[in-house]
Design a protein around this nucleic acid. Structure first.
Lengths: 181, 181
DNA sequence: CCGCGGTAGTTAAAATTTCAAGGAGAGCTC
DNA sequence: GAGCTCTCCTTGAAATTTTAACTACCGCGG
């Protein structure tokens, strides 16, 4: 039995609507690509989670949040903005920041302009954790991915992932300008 | 500030041990590739989780477990074996199977040869869920990935992900033959 | 047969994520 | 300026995952 192809029924009634027809199953080649992708991404995320949990005391996503803050002007970002950059829900971010706050790596600050708003601010302690753990993390990423790929492969991967990400972007740049789409 | 590059200190003391030196930070190009990868994989996993949660009542990993069982002889697999194929821990699998068992999609069976062993067996109901939801899932995967990539890109992606997965494989084939490595 | 180290799988508890609601303020309209 | 809608963010509870034991059993060497 093939991946995701669990039906081996005969020809569909008639090609009218697109949803009720015999679906276009993945070809063998496509299946292999898909499985390779799923396997690699699962293993990689797991690997980085363990590496960072061990060396930095936090999962990969949380580390990514600190990095984004570190890159931002005044080391701060509005919650919603940070959530968008990190591609996670605001709810998830709320919980995550609460945890990072307990660690003393992030601090919340009220937004003066909008009383609903909150800034997440990277503290000096948070900065310090990054400084200490960044080298190990880069090494892990290199070892797991970049050291194993040719320059061409790296380039291709970048292009491919950009395309995929674009297609899944909740609505891309101009999310606040829905009338333009 | 660059991704993962939080230290802008000057030259390191002296290149002696490999761990204490100035780390090889990611180049700008590498950073872009890495971010694209993280963004895309995050968005994609999230997308598929939601699609399957909505249409099949389970997260993507669980769906993958049912698929692996469906592909296996007699629709069954030893717990440890299933965990390896799915790239998850045995603990996680235990919980997952418990949940799928409650849904009636999987059943546990004792292994006759090894009294410690358990088989996870796909039930008819589980088979039926797959049959009903596979088309929608394939469509989602196509729309998110394959429909957007050229044949060359698909091929490249497969090769790249195979390489990455191989490098992270706990110990690859022959894991039970450590003296061969 | 006994003891011992290793394997298969489970489980409780803690951490994280998801899901569904909700509180509070912004911004617009009449 | 009251009402309405939408946005920002949080929260509690449920679901899932992680972590660290823990039980039962296999297999080997004595």
């Amino acid at each position: 039995m093939e991946y995701m192809n669990t039906a081996s029924t005969s020809a569909p009634p008639s090609p009218v609507s697109a949803s009720a027809e015999e679906p276009r199953w993945l070809t063998d080649d496509e299946q292999r690509v898909w499985r390779a992708y799923i396997d690699a991404s699962t293993l990689l995320e797991d690997h980085l989670d363990r590496q960072l949990q061990r060396d930095a005391g936090m999962p990969h996503v949380y580390y990514g949040l600190l990095v984004k803050l570190a890159e931002s002007p005044r080391r701060r970002l509005r919650m919603t903005e940070l959530a968008m950059y990190a591609k996670i829900t605001r709810s998830r971010l709320s919980h995550a920041i609460a945890r990072l706050e307990k660690n003393g790596w992030v601090r919340r600050e009220d937004c003066p302009d909008d009383k609903r708003g909150q800034f997440a601010v990277l503290t000096d302690a948070g900065m310090e954790v990054l400084r200490e753990t960044a080298p190990g993390h880069v090494a892990a990423v290199r070892q797991a991915m970049f050291d194993r790929l040719t320059t061409e492969q790296q380039k291709a991967l970048g292009e491919i992932m950009r395309i995929v990400a674009e297609g899944l972007q909740p609505s891309e740049a101009g999310a606040d300008l829905p009338w333009l789409r």
